[in-house]
Design a binder for these strands. Sequence first.
DNA 1: ACCTGAACACCGTTCAAGT
DNA 2: ACCTGAACACCGTTCAAGT
Lengths: 249, 249
Amino acid sequence: MSKAAKRKRSPTSRASAKRETSGKGARTLNRDTIIAAALAEIDLVGLDNFSLRNLAKALGVFPTAVSWYVAGRSQLLAEVAHKVLEDIIPPGFHDSWQGYLREFLQRFRQAIRAHPNVAPLIGTQLVANPAVDLDFVERLLAALAHAGLSGVNLVSAYNAVIAAAVGFTTQEFAPVPAEGTSAWQAEIRTRLQNVSSTRYPQLAKNMKLLGNKAFTLRWQNGTDAPLDSSFTSFVDIFISGLEQFAGRE
Amino acid sequence: MSKAAKRKRSPTSRASAKRETSGKGARTLNRDTIIAAALAEIDLVGLDNFSLRNLAKALGVFPTAVSWYVAGRSQLLAEVAHKVLEDIIPPGFHDSWQGYLREFLQRFRQAIRAHPNVAPLIGTQLVANPAVDLDFVERLLAALAHAGLSGVNLVSAYNAVIAAAVGFTTQEFAPVPAEGTSAWQAEIRTRLQNVSSTRYPQLAKNMKLLGNKAFTLRWQNGTDAPLDSSFTSFVDIFISGLEQFAGRE
DNA sequence: ACCTGAACACCGTTCAAGT
DNA sequence: ACCTGAACACCGTTCAAGT
């Protein structure tokens, strides 16, 4: 229904058939180069300031050259998100299933930590990627099957793992408002410090532990103030919950 | 550094001092009206097609009239996200702490289910809201304190709850690519159906249970294909994990 | 096949002007 | 205080043209 629906027979379909680094000119532009450059650009200027035109400028080509390889902005962003997550599959299944999940969750976090500016894309783009890495899904399912899960419970547990990975990490590295940064940084701080201990006893009691360390009470994101111990606890909580869930079978 | 940084003495600061529905003209425009209209517009056309100019048109004013009340696009979106989540605090603390958390997570999901188009904003905008609802945080902390948690573990558990809520729900209702919808819908289906049972045994075995029901293997989002039972299991897993975590103290 | 080049319809934001 | 109105610098995408 939208304007994107009326696209037709775009030449974007399949581009990287052969490579031909053989003789003369040596094609400089290709799909992977563009995606890599897009990621670098996003790392540099942030998601809000990223544009296809600036990307083209960085690549030294016309804006329309990019769209010969990539169907549009949103598809490019999907590819970028995919690239960031390309190495999250733990190598082998040496350990226990708990160890496998633990390593997966840590790898997921590290992947986003390395490119925090793409964090907002992760939750959005992981919906249904046509280029889903089936190996990734298979291995995760295998680990959960090792835990004794099968059928609908296996599927539920799989969804739970993805939800857990996405939830903590996208939150932790979500961009901080660019506006009057130091202005509301101070506002949150003082607001927390002056909180009424009769009306908000728990907040008052744990004020120092909460400041800049609890979601919605932070003034920096995971890049500047990582939540390492919270993440470790989160993984512990989640995995021990899965153990119980699997044991119930 | 960015262009937003050079804003100065904008008249946007404080707008709704008095209301004056008294006599003659009856101010038609105000902050709440704008936020409500923005949410309605996003519900209607989606986040990608939402623009301040169309919003202004819907309100019957000039684009620049809107920015007298709202500092900019991103701030408006933050307010919209905040509005969607305004009723997620469970009313009383009647039940057990487990019951409280369960209700909170369900309310969170229902809130986003009612406005799925804002789902991508939730993870992003919940970072550090200057207008954080302290009552919300206090009640959540109180529930977790009831579980026997305190100190750093209390903070970790709080973060875990937020992460869990955000993770599942934003995923479940994340927008589906608008491109050649039915094209890749079919692609995912057939790809899943033709999966090699030797290379991907778990995928092959659970093919029917996974199709359109597992993250990254869906071709619809939660609006068309809700993941009710997966969500229930997720909540079970998480809460029983929290029980263990609290018992370890 | 791959890229240039111009053009289109749109966008958020600024700045001056009205009342 | 609140809104109009014009203008600015930018954006993604389309379409024709080159090689």
